[in-house]
């Protein structure tokens, strides 16, 4: 017998959310969605959640199981009963307002997707037939096109938790789907937008979106692809791009980071406010003799490292 501890919320009846428990001895192989359906159809018809395809295609049944976003139809309930526990905690997706029980308001999610202009932008006159794309060209956007907009990545994104201005993993993955599209002709314009505060350089690389994504879209890896395009396009007048360039330069020079240089080069020599921000922490570390050595010693055989950089075009 398993206990389903479900977060309930119905503002028409009670202002605060609360947890309700349901016992259900689910059959082998039952998905979390099968269990919720059993509870709704046999135990409590007021339980509210979204569902449709039951095949991890429609992206409707995103929710949290034991604290992490998932698709209820894609996860077997038994897999959520680890370490001999008999309880599965089910909650609505995070980083979104809750409408009722497990149903969340996706408005902000859609607004951010809209913000990246999720459609082809072309300058040429439309051809007589379709705009062609080779299988090789399609492979560059193959992963991003698998996104089913379930909101799992958005729910668990560590940055969105503290900064609602961040575009977030789903919208950025969608942006890569168009930046990488051989038929799109607005790459530079898109990259410039994505390089603004709240864009691709605000991703912390924490991997939470990769972990929660039920498809091969894996937004963080798409964000990395966007960053590479940004640097290639020379859209470098921002802290994130300068940081990457300074980092590469430092590793090429000595095989390792020069922690005294990178913060200054990342902020930019003319970014007075940014540079002033570094002063308190710099002084604090200096007083504790915690700053990196002034003489930056390279790794042994750094010539070999520099040779590898050159071989790969850096």
């Amino acid at each position: 017998m398993a206990k389903f501890r479900i977060k309930r919320y119905n503002p028409e009846k009670q202002a605060d959310a609360y947890y309700e428990e349901y016992d259900y001895d689910f059959p082998e192989g039952a998905t979390l969605l099968d269990c919720l359906n059993h509870i709704k159809w046999n135990m409590d018809g007021t339980l509210t959640y979204r569902m449709s395809c039951r095949s991890a295609i429609c992206g409707s049944c995103g929710m949290k199981g034991n604290g992490h976003a998932l698709l209820a139809c894609q996860r077997q309930a038994a897999h959520l009963l680890k370490d001999g526990s008999d309880t599965i905690t089910i909650e609505p997706l995070g980083n979104m307002p809750v409408i009722k029980d497990l149903v969340t308001d996706f408005q902000q999610f859609w607004d951010k997707v809209d913000q990246v202009k999720p459609y082809l932008k072309t300058k040429d006159k439309p051809p007589e037939k379709e705009r062609e794309q080779s299988p090789h060209e399609f492979r560059k956007i193959d992963e991003a096109t698998t996104c089913i907009m379930c909101g799992a990545c958005y729910s668990d994104c560590n940055v969105l938790e503290v900064d609602k201005n961040f575009l977030g993993p789903a919208a950025l993955a969608k942006a890569q789907r168009f930046v990488g599209d051989s038929r799109d002709q607005a790459t530079r314009e898109r990259i410039k937008e994505l390089s603004k505060p709240g864009g691709m350089w605000d991703c912390t690389h924490c991997g939470e979106c990769v972990e929660r994504c039920p498809k091969p879209a894996e937004p963080f890896y798409r964000i990395k692809e966007l960053m590479a395009v940004g640097l290639k396009e020379g859209v470098t007048n921002n802290v994130g791009a300068r940081h990457a360039l300074s980092f590469v330069k430092s590793v090429k020079h000595s095989g390792r980071l020069n922690e005294n240089k990178i913060p200054v080069e990342s902020m930019g020599y003319f970014n007075i406010k940014g540079l002033l921000d570094l002063v308190p922490v710099g002084l604090r570390m200096l007083l504790k003799m915690k700053i990196p050595p002034i003489i930056h010693k390279p790794v042994d055989d750094v010539k070999d490292v520099q040779r590898i950089f050159e071989e790969f075009g850096e």
């Binding site: 990395k224 640097l231 590793v251 390792r256 980071l257 790969f312 850096e314």
Partner: peptide, 22 residues
């Protein structure tokens, strides 16, 4: 003593193949 920086996920923002080579 001859090992390089791991790239910290930043070198690969510019050049993923170089990161894997290092």
């Amino acid at each position: 003593k001859s090992a390089t920086c791991c790239g910290a996920g930043v070198v690969s923002e510019k050049n993923p193949v170089l990161t894997d080579a290092l």
